[in-house]
Amino acid sequence: MGRISAQERRESVIRAAIAEFALKGYHGTSTAAIAERVGVTQPYLFRLFPDKRAIFVAALVRSMEDTRLAFARAADGVEGGERARQVMADAYARLISTRPETLLMQMQGYAAVAAAEAQGDDLIGEVVRAGWMSIWETVHLSLGADADRTASFFACGMLGNTLTAIGLPASAGR
């Protein structure tokens, strides 16, 4: 078995960071915990990423892109707004039931925006807003660019997110 490349190790760090930050948030997560989860030393971790903030941003970007891709793949080739809505909702339900850390990481990102911006750090807010707009655009186009349908889709999704975050099944909101 060959050595793991720096890119593969970086990928492992991002996945470990999503799991750690999802549960403990930015301030509650140590880089030592991330390094331990991956099986590397902290100095090696900092060869892959310049600092904890960069790891958090990479984890946030990945979790938002994973969500966007779940919607895009589900709706690919689907005709009709209602059918697209259903396949995207089903894909998202599968994503958050099999990988709840994806959703929880995004929620940690949303929570981190105000604190970071209060300290003059706009990067996390910029990443969150860009990720959100990318997800919105993917869903919006898949739903025939209907603003009301898109808003309704996300309203139902946020209810599911909230229920999942507090430990209830998303179906509890139906």
Rank of each mutant, 00 (worst) to 15 (best):
A116C: 05
F71S: 09
A72F: 00
G80S: 03
G28Y: 01
S30L: 10
T67C: 11
L103I: 07
R85V: 01
G131P: 07
Q119K: 07
R99T: 03
V87M: 02
M107H: 10
E82A: 12
I55R: 13
M133D: 15
A70H: 04
A33N: 11
D76H: 11
A72M: 04
E36D: 15
S97D: 15
I96L: 15
T67F: 12
G125K: 06
T102R: 13
I124Q: 05
A22V: 07
S30G: 15
I135E: 11
E101P: 00
T98I: 05
I135W: 06
L95M: 15
Q106H: 03
T41H: 02
V127I: 14
Q86V: 11
G120Q: 04
L69M: 14
K52P: 10
A145S: 12
D76K: 12
I96Y: 15
Y44E: 03
R37N: 05
V139K: 06
Q42M: 10
T138I: 12
I34G: 11
V113C: 04
K52I: 10
A54K: 05
P50V: 08
A114P: 05
M107K: 09
A145I: 00
I34R: 10
W132R: 13
G144L: 00
D76Q: 12
V38F: 03
L123G: 00
I135R: 09
A118C: 05
A114E: 07
A115D: 12
V127E: 08
G39Q: 06
D121L: 06
A89I: 07
A114I: 08
G125T: 02
L103R: 07
E137Q: 14
V57C: 08
G25Q: 04
T29E: 07
Q108P: 03
Q86S: 15
V87Q: 04
A112V: 00
M64A: 14
A112N: 00
A54M: 01
M107N: 10
A111W: 01
D121F: 00
A130N: 12
H27Q: 13
M64Q: 15
A114T: 11
A75C: 03
T67V: 06
V40K: 00
L103M: 13
A58S: 08
V61H: 07
S134Q: 15
